[in-house]
């Protein structure tokens, strides 16, 4: 499941970050910030207008990611397929 589709408040684990195009700097930055396989993440809140951007917690750090940025992160949610 994409991180952008994760249910609010659910614990998830990063599977991978995919490049939206070759040498994608945004995907690279996400990996630098700790979005790598095995890291626990949680969708804390959604923005007030159209549910964008998303507030993502990774470790004890919170990041605001726009929806299309969060779409690059593939996660598995506990108790979901």
């Amino acid at each position: 499941m994409r991180l952008s589709d994760a249910p609010k408040g659910a614990q998830a684990v990063v599977k991978t970050v995919t490049d939206a195009h070759p040498a994608d700097p945004i995907a690279q930055r996400l990996r630098d910030l700790g979005f790598v396989a095995g890291e626990p993440v949680r969708l804390v809140a959604r923005g007030p207008l159209g549910g964008d951007p998303l507030l993502i917690q990774i470790g004890s750090t919170r990041f605001a990611l726009r929806r299309n940025e969060a779409e690059r992160v593939e996660v598995s949610v506990e108790g979901a397929a």
């Binding site: 939206a20 945004i26 930055r29 750090t61 990041f63 605001a64 726009r66 940025e69």
Partner: peptide, 11 residues
């Protein structure tokens, strides 16, 4: 091209 938000919300 797409320019990122990716903004840290500190404690």
């Amino acid at each position: 091209s797409e320019h990122a938000l990716i903004m840290e919300l500190p404690s």
